[in-house]
Design a protein around this nucleic acid. Structure first.
Lengths: 185, 185
DNA sequence: GTCTATAATTTGATAGAC
DNA sequence: GTCTATCAAATTATAGAC
């Protein structure tokens, strides 16, 4: 695998563990097996590197969502596959959502990076909103669909944060169970 | 106001803006109007300072909850006052919940500080669980009460993060509206 | 309690050789 | 594309005077 890819992968993991202020070029370089000046060759500044990693994260996230999309699929299946993405991030990667963590510290983020994190949320809300529009309970009410979308992504990001700090994946499961019961799917 | 209090107040604000790695003793000192060595006099290490601030945050938070507690109060009123605490933090302080932000970066936190953040969540879940136990829908099922408690605090923390990064308080309102409709209060 | 002074380390970033 | 070498600034923390 190319060093450019390794750099992005290592950086993604470090941001997902401790946020924007928790990694340095030297640490990244050590984990990749190169020198910090080589990291600067690929990404001149810390903002450049972080924005690239956030963009990659969002693009991968959305492309996974779009993949399983033979429109024959039901709304319930769509929501399940959406929830599964978060569940996998928490239980397999054992880390926060990259954009969730960055959103929490967004007041302290370089504007360029904050914009990229907003893109993650906008795309997610748009995707979810379209799914909810098909749901029986929503009945072609775009505002209600958006409200449910905002509610769902918020609950999922919050559930990750809650269960991570308490070291209890069951807390994530509890929230999903409540969500399913309340949203009826 | 004493410098000791000023230090804690300034630190709380800085953590709520950018997390554990976003503040330095010099910055704190500058904002208080003293020198960084004077901050070290009150709090020898960064962990000491952060733990004290987190403890103070949780204690204040819980004492506000306990205050309005003449047991004549209804479950609906209890939940409303709980939600109001988060809403005020977001809309008046214009910042994240201190323990919410620290929870997001908990994998990178000193163990002592992480423990203190866990205390915030445990106390909140306990308080909410007791309220839900009185709710008609729960019917003396402690596990269901706890599940609803975990669900509610997760949704609120997530809603803060989502609406903060998007600069849209309406997103918080949307989530509350959904919560009320779904939890029926 | 607050100050000056300072130590030891880490940080983001650059210049220039290969 | 990666390296060595280096810089200026910032970081946590301590010693000791007042």
């Amino acid at each position: 695998m190319s060093n450019l890819l390794k750099i992005q992968e290592v950086t993604e993991n470090m941001i997902r563990i401790g946020g924007y202020n928790s990694f340095s070029f030297r640490e990244i370089a050590d984990k990749v097996g190169i020198k910090s000046s080589s990291v600067h060759y690929h990404f001149p500044t810390k903002v450049d590197l972080s924005v690239a990693v956030a963009r990659r994260y969002t693009d991968t996230f959305m492309s996974i969502l779009e993949e399983a999309k033979p429109s024959s699929i039901t709304i319930e299946e769509s929501l399940n596959s959406y929830i599964n993405l978060f569940e996998k991030a928490l239980k397999e990667d054992c880390k926060m959502c990259l954009c969730g963590l960055l959103a929490a510290e967004s007041l302290n983020l370089p504007e360029e990076l904050k914009k990229e994190v907003q893109r993650f949320f906008n795309l997610n809300i748009k995707w979810l909103g379209e799914k909810f529009l098909q749901h029986a309970d929503v009945q072609n009410d775009p505002e209600l669909a958006e409200a449910k979308a905002v509610f769902l992504i918020s609950a999922l990001e919050g559930a990750m944060l809650t269960s991570q700090v308490n070291n209890k994946n069951e807390m994530f499961d509890m929230t999903i169970q409540q969500l399913r019961a309340l949203l009826k799917f």
